[in-house]
Write a protein that binds this DNA or RNA. Structure first.
Lengths: 349, 349
DNA sequence: CTGAAAGCGCTTACAG
DNA sequence: CTGAAAGCGCTTACAG
């Protein structure tokens, strides 16, 4: 491998000068620069980033922790994050917890070994908040609260829930089934994300006197399970006339409805939550609440930038500084909130 | 940051000894080891991987170049690759060309700067084979030929095409429409992947005297375009009774068919090629040719391992060694071929 | 403007 | 079995 030393020798200058030329920093006379550039070309010199990384203690890499990108929701999130990071000269390391036996801790470990500069945490975690705050390296959470000092970004699920409820009430729904994650996760302080829109819908259905049941979908990792879930809904609630769930659940529910000869939207309305491409592939154009993935990714990247800058600035107090900023202007639940939108489709009345 | 030096001082030993303990290499007496481990705990020592990387000139990171993981095909491929790499203690860097203005060359550059140990190339490229062979670093191609010495893995598209043709002939299809990439890419020596199954189907349709037209789908990056493509098929070929295309195209074709009141499969058969989750979300269970993503990922990772090992072994002749091996046993077209399977569904007769 | 030197944090021959 | 030394390839004060 040809290094700076070889270039310096070839050009008859010192290694420092070569470095200055390569980086375009400091002042170098024109003929020096010319000599160095000639030598670099001659030897096909390519700088080795690893040495820089060591010196700077930086990799310019961010780990994105998701359950799996097999699920369109996380594929979409990850794709948008990668785009945002690329814009900021940051690389994206794919960290999926579905395969990793150790879950996310393996990736946290990598963060501490300086294999990456920060982590976006978008997977479920069993750890308590103090675990996350004790890491003292850049972490930004998506759609979950990991504790004080860990900034977080999420969609405005309350509004999402309200949009859905309004649609259902306005169209005269009588028996709504909500599909979501394990109900045990609905406790106060859960890091589970979709809770908020479900609770909002349930409350508004209760207020409007509309029946509303909840069905637990299989793990986000297991796509096949959603098919069984869809069938189970119709078995358990034969008079269901509205189903609300993630894109994948909604698509499978529609497929199952057609199979059973239930006409949509006349006798059954379906609303998808998330608004990824998955919703567009279904049998009909699904009505949906769409999360603003571009906006979410931009906010996450912005927070990450701040975390990294804070770490570089002062080793002490870096965390608390960003924590203050994030909390500012928000109500009880901290974190930055990104608006959602309702997209009409062929599956609502 | 606490480093080995601090640990050594705390334990009253040399840095070398600490290194031996940390790595578990060489012989260290039990009490030395105990002292060092105590000191590591005491100081919360965590090794800095960057220094190791520099010494070893390795990052244990593989770049996976795809157009975009927004498309389920590449999301699926990438997810499976990540799993395979994780198994081998390799990290996966997400490299999507859709956003990168410079296309894949940015990532090739990173490879040369040793920011990663190798690249899986699964995106379209305009570069000529000599570009790829001149890189002299570990590269493995998916579903395309990048030139001598660049190993490649692909599905058995010829068999995929034969399976489709057999189904169409057996069910009495009369007018088939194939949807695929730009026809200009069908020239000899193209790196475009799906060509093979299309050509096989076309040949077999011609032999059987069945009408067969070809429609160009929008870019793989642009999902919305597929919707327009689906509509265009019915406009242009009102008597079409079979459509073959990627999962996404097939799903959109089915949606459009329902919208037009065309009954599937009675009057229109639809066969999806790829077999990702996207195919399962459609209005009906799509019949499909499924690519074996797990098998593909395993083969790619295996080839990558060999490339990396070859590079470490000898700087000279590393490429040629693997090239020989890859070509061995294959016919005209080099590369490792992974079987596909036909999955029956609700969209064929 | 240019060069010699120290250093990023670790690993690995090489002496003892 | 343990330590002093050189080195991975680069960057950055610091003298000149």
């Amino acid at each position: 491998m040809v290094g700076m030393r070889d270039v310096a020798k070839e050009a008859g200058v010192s290694v420092s000068t070569v470095s200055l030329v390569v980086n375009g920093t400091g002042y170098v006379s024109d003929d020096m620069r010319a000599k160095v550039e000639a030598a670099m070309h001659e030897l096909h010199y390519i700088p080795n980033e690893l040495a820089r990384n060591l010196y700077r203690n930086r990799t310019n890499t961010i780990g994105v922790i998701v359950p799996t990108i097999l699920h369109p929701f996380f594929a979409t999130l990850t794709a948008h994050l990668q785009r945002e990071f690329a814009r900021r000269d940051l690389k994206t390391l794919l960290c999926s917890t579905a395969d990793a036996a150790t879950g996310e801790s393996e990736y946290v470990n990598m963060l501490q070994r300086h294999m990456m500069d920060g982590i976006i945490m978008a997977a479920h975690t069993e750890h308590q908040p103090d675990y996350w705050t004790s890491i003292h390296r850049p972490i930004v959470a998506f759609d979950r609260i990991l504790g004080e000092g860990v900034p977080s970004v999420r969609s405005d699920h309350e509004t999402g829930g309200r949009m859905i409820a309004r649609q259902l009430i306005g169209s005269g729904a009588r028996h709504v089934v909500l599909v979501g994650g394990p109900r045990s996760q609905f406790a106060e302080g859960t890091t589970f994300p979709t809770v908020r829109y479900h609770l909002t819908v349930e409350r508004m259905m209760a207020d409007a006197g509309i029946a509303c049941d909840y069905v637990e979908a299989g793990s986000v990792t297991d796509v096949v399970a959603h098919e069984a879930t869809a069938a189970a809904i119709f078995e358990r609630y034969p008079d269901v006339d509205a189903i609300v769930g993630s894109d994948v659940v909604a698509a499978m529910a529609l497929q199952e409805a057609e199979r059973r000869g239930i006409s949509v939207p006349a006798n059954l309305q379906i609303i998808a939550y998330d608004g990824t491409m998955a919703a567009e592939l279904a049998g009909k154009r699904l009505a949906m609440v769409r999360q603003d993935f571009a906006g979410i990714a931009a906010a996450l990247a912005e927070q990450m930038d701040q975390q990294i800058e804070a770490e570089n600035g002062s080793n002490h107090g870096a965390q608390s500084k960003s924590a203050e900023q994030v909390d500012a202007g928000e109500s009880a639940q901290p974190g930055q909130v990104v608006p959602v939108s309702f997209i009409a489709g062929e599956t609502t009345r």
